[in-house]
Amino acid sequence: MEYLDALKIKSTQINNMIEEKLIKDKELIIQNPHSMHNIATGLAIDGKVTIKGSTGFYTGGFLEGASVIVEGNAGWYAGDNMMDGELIITKNAGCNAGTYLYGGTIVIRGSAGSRVGYGMKGGTIIVCGSAGRWAGQMTLGGKLILLGKVGKQLGESMYKGVIYIQDEEAKNNLGGNVFIDKITPTEVDELNTLFKKYDIDAKGENFVAIRPMTTGRHTYVLFNPDLTPEKARKELGKNPKKLEKGVAYE
């Protein structure tokens, strides 16, 4: 077991040091991370790095191979562009966790902020708590597994990939161009295997799948200004003064 006290180390230096330590021993404990940014960037060596405390932005960005455990919270963009390996966050993750994930697995034992899995292309993200709005926006692949409550615009404009949820209210929070589908038996098995591996208390059977709607080339529904004169007429009646008070604009 190797140790690294991060208190007096700069984020520009720490990654080389982590690499050197991992060459000596496959297990490393980092103390006093004091919410440092860019810890374990692009780490491409096998081994296990345990960070005793919370981290800043981009924890494990471009990670490739190692297993990184954050015993605390992780800031925004945890595991961005990750290639392979594991990133486990024992508490909460900020916004945009696992953005552009390419491969590997991210497990967030607490909740995740908005846009978890933005544009992810592969790999797996598991959020044990709730996930903020726009989760899985424009994903191109991979699996996003959300155990708790989900925010608005779930899966907006997914191109490929799948989101598994068990939040019953999610149907009111779906983004555009996605639909709720049954989960297949193979998928249930996959989920259960993952839950077992990461010691997560959940059952694959309870999930439904959110999938992209990619039928036909012009079916993509993008934002369009809503021109609803009938509605406006009703709301405003014949009293244009209302407009001045901004009623029409909410």
Binding site: Y100, M138, R217, Y220
Partner: peptide, 16 residues
Amino acid sequence: QLPTGIDLHSHPRHGD
């Protein structure tokens, strides 16, 4: 990593 047959309007902001 796109499906065929769609008109692509790609990601507007850097997610990271």
